[in-house]
Design a protein around this nucleic acid. Structure first.
Lengths: 205, 205
DNA sequence: TGAAATTTTAACCATATGGTTAAAATAATT
DNA sequence: AATTATTTTAACCATATGGTTAAAATTTCA
């Protein structure tokens, strides 16, 4: 494969990523992707056979971003639990600040077709059992049941993700549509959410 | 309008609600709605001119369910803050247990077309300023800035909504696709989330 | 320069879909 | 029974869309 081909392929993937993430599989148009990539529909199909195949590649990629790589840090023993939480929250929110539509995209497409999730997870190389391991660790350290630790973990993830998935709503109602104020707000959460969670650990169980 | 007409209209609306909520505007097919309602496409258009009009009615309705009526309770002075939080969380999660796809539906359609939100909010009769009022109250009671209280409020909402919007993902990864266990988990959150939040109030700000 | 690879043009196909129409059939009402 | 309202049938239309094709144009590179 020549460099040029790689370039074109990348341009197409970039365009597809943009359109798919914004509009979803249903809402995206092949023509729009071609336009966005600055090429024509024929060439688009020349590089990627079908819409589904192209979408699959993008979804795969984005799912890889969505699953926090940091999860392994959570199960290491190098840092204190508090520092792990700080790192997790900070890094996870940072990813979403860089990819603001990632949460909505993943949640939307997962809702549309939950069946395919398993194979995508396998292909993404994400180790599901590691999350359960992290939770088991948490439950030991915090003197909790597994179920309680699972709530704790999901709480943490909720606080990171929801402000992105619910942005249009929250921005309108609580920020008078002020985008830069909302961006500032998201920045703040890197620290605030972590400290908020840590605070809950300091009162009795 | 006769009773029969009302019945048919209701049947159509029920069918439309089901299909739209599951598939979204883009994914829904008029034929599928007609089938679900047990009628034909001609009659469907006879009752509701266009897909957009029909969708508009459903979206309006569901947005009304989504906005917590309980928000007014938060600004009353009858209950302690802790009890208000308990009531809010309990009622809000209960709504979603009754309407499990409501969060995904609202978030998805809001993402697709954020522009129309304003007019929908107006028509739904939801008072945006009341939320800001609640937050101002919170900031006074908790010795916080408005910004901090806003984080607090959004945290509370995040913890209620995300487990519904992210259900396919969480269920797969942390519940081995066990639906009844996940339902149990959601039940628990009515209490757990409230107590979790209240706990954060008891350590210094 | 000339062959090979890449890209464009533009017409075309099949299918899906929202929407319409008019007549026939059925049910409700008087 | 006759009238009116509701519902079905089924053909039809316009348009959008994913996808294909073959030839021409352009670029790349030996």
């Amino acid at each position: 494969m020549t460099d040029q081909q790689k370039d074109t392929e990348q341009m197409i993937l970039n365009a597809a990523r943009k359109v798919f993430i914004e509009k979803g599989l249903d809402g995206a148009r092949m023509q729009e992707i071609a336009d966005e990539a600055g090429i024509n529909k024929a060439l688009l199909h020349y590089y990627f056979r079908s819409k589904d195949k192209l979408f699959g590649m993008i979804f795969q990629e984005e799912l890889g971003k969505f699953f926090p790589k940091i999860i392994s840090v959570m199960s290491s023993s190098e840092y204190s639990l508090e520092d792990k939480i700080r790192a997790f929250v900070n890094d996870y929110i940072s990813i979403f600040i860089k990819n603001p539509f990632l949460p909505s995209f993943i949640l939307r497409e997962l809702q549309r077709d939950p069946e395919n999730l398993r194979q995508f997870i396998v292909k993404s190389g994400f180790d599901v059992s590691s999350v359960k391991f992290v939770i088991t660790n948490l439950s030991n350290q915090l003197n909790m049941t597994f179920d309680e630790a699972r709530h704790f973990m999901i709480n943490m993830v909720s606080l990171c993700i929801f402000p992105f998935a619910g942005r249009p709503l929250i921005e309108k109602i609580l920020f008078s549509e002020d985008k830069s104020e909302y961006n500032q707000f998201l920045e703040e959460r890197k620290v605030i959410v972590a400290e908020y969670i840590i605070r809950t650990l300091k009162t009795g169980k």
